[in-house]
Amino acid sequence: MRTRQRDRDVEGPRSPWDEVVPGLWMGGHVWTDPAGELRAAVVNEEFDLVVSLFARAGHGPAPHVDHLVAEMPDGPLSAEQLRAVQHLAAATHEALRAHRTVLVRCHSGYNRSGLVVAQTLFLAGLAPAAAIELIRRRRSPWALHNATFVDYLTTGLDVAVLLTDLEPP
Rank of each mutant, 00 (worst) to 15 (best):
T3A: 13
R4P: 08
R4V: 06
Q5F: 15
R6E: 14
D7K: 02
E11Y: 02
E11N: 08
R14Q: 10
D18I: 01
E19Y: 07
V20M: 10
P22F: 12
G23T: 11
L24Q: 05
G27P: 04
G28W: 09
H29R: 12
V30Y: 09
V30K: 10
T32C: 13
R39N: 13
R39H: 11
A40I: 12
A40M: 12
V42Y: 08
V43Q: 06
F47A: 13
F47M: 15
L49I: 12
V50L: 00
V51A: 09
L53F: 00
F54W: 13
R56Y: 04
R56K: 14
R56M: 13
A57I: 00
G58T: 03
G58H: 04
G58S: 01
H59V: 00
G60D: 11
P61D: 11
A62Y: 01
A62S: 11
D66F: 04
D66M: 12
H67P: 10
L68I: 08
E71L: 15
E71A: 15
E71M: 14
P73I: 13
D74I: 03
G75A: 14
A79M: 05
A79N: 08
L82D: 12
V85T: 07
V85D: 08
V85K: 10
Q86T: 13
L88V: 06
A89W: 05
A89H: 11
A95K: 08
A95N: 07
L96E: 01
R97D: 05
R97H: 09
T101I: 07
V104R: 00
S108C: 04
Y110M: 01
R112V: 04
R112H: 00
S113C: 00
G114S: 07
G114Q: 06
V117I: 00
Q119T: 15
T120D: 06
L121C: 03
A124L: 14
A124D: 12
A129V: 09
A131G: 01
I132D: 04
L134W: 07
L134A: 14
I135P: 04
R136M: 10
R139A: 04
P141C: 02
P141Y: 07
H145C: 01
N146G: 03
F149L: 02
D151K: 11
D151G: 08
Y152D: 03
T155F: 01
T155A: 04
G156D: 01
G156W: 06
L157F: 04
L157H: 03
A160R: 10
A160M: 08
V161L: 07
L162E: 15
T164Y: 11
T164G: 13
E167I: 06
P168L: 12
P168E: 06
P168Y: 01
